[in-house]
Amino acid sequence: MPIEAPLLEVRNLKRFFPIRRGLLRRVVGQLRAVDDISFHINRGETLSLVGESGCGKTTTARCILRALKPTAGEVLFQTAAGDVIDTAALPKGALQPFRHQMQMIFQDPFSSLNPRMTVFDIIAEPLLANGVKSRDQRRQRVEELLELVRLRPEFMQRFPHAFSGGQRQRIGIARALALNPSLIVADEPVSALDVSVQAQILNLMLDLQDELGLTYLFVAHDLSVVKHISDRVAVMYVGKIVEIAETDRLFKAPKHPYTEALLSAVPKPDPRLRSERIVLAGEVADPAQPPTGCYFHPRCAHAIDRCRSETPKLEEIQPGHVVACHRAREITLKGVDAQSNGKPSA
């Protein structure tokens, strides 16, 4: 357990979207996109938020950045001055002075850069907005940032359309770093890139974390990518966190049946490992009409009566390993092990 306070602590975060129907657009229900989740991120570490589409991971990220207003809950962020603020509660205006301490890296390297602005204008914009009035100063900082993300400073007069996806993603990272943020929220930053380029961006993010002491919240669906970048992993299913653990633990010894199924479903890049996979039956639950009890029970092989009626709470079953499963202590699940199944020699 950390001695110092975490950089970010999310407590009982909820975000519901009203479902409207009919001519009068009456609210007929609530889509529980994020349904009472809590976690923390320590300074300098990477926490990954994984899950399938619609599980609420992106909504969570946007609530933390206050791009979306949470329905309920606290988002406690430790500012550079050492104070703790609740970004969920502050009015937007009062949040402004702290905004630059949390920045975002986007999934789509094409829509995240304004095609009508030069690279210089894109990266310098946060500087301009935060009071760096001298153009020379801005130019110098942009040069620094471009070198930091391994791009040539001469590129700054070019427009985004002159760059490949991987290069654009570097530009997006440079922009996010412009204001020396402490927290970077990266929403699927490599999933739109070609596989041979993914590794470059992942390595860059690891390097930058070491160089600048950054803290990452890494939102992703790809468990292989997550394994490379994270210290800890939180797994989400239908708006809830089902398991949080250190990366190695979670992959080797998952305690939630959903985590196990997720790990097992990842296609392994080795034809000799075409093994028996756990193929989940059925479909992901509808967050507008979630099942009773544990949301995962209709697809779970280990479900008992209690799972159908009672919603499991997140419980710490080992130091740092929390699971929301009634049977977490009694069932043994299969993870993936780097020792027995090393990567194919190439």
Partner: peptide, 18 residues
């Protein structure tokens, strides 16, 4: 094959790149 992220990798290891 070397550069693709693998689920079997050690956490927080850099990948060889192209």
């Amino acid at each position: 094959l070397r550069s693709i992220p693998s689920i079997f990798a050690e956490p927080r290891t850099k990948l060889p790149t192209i």
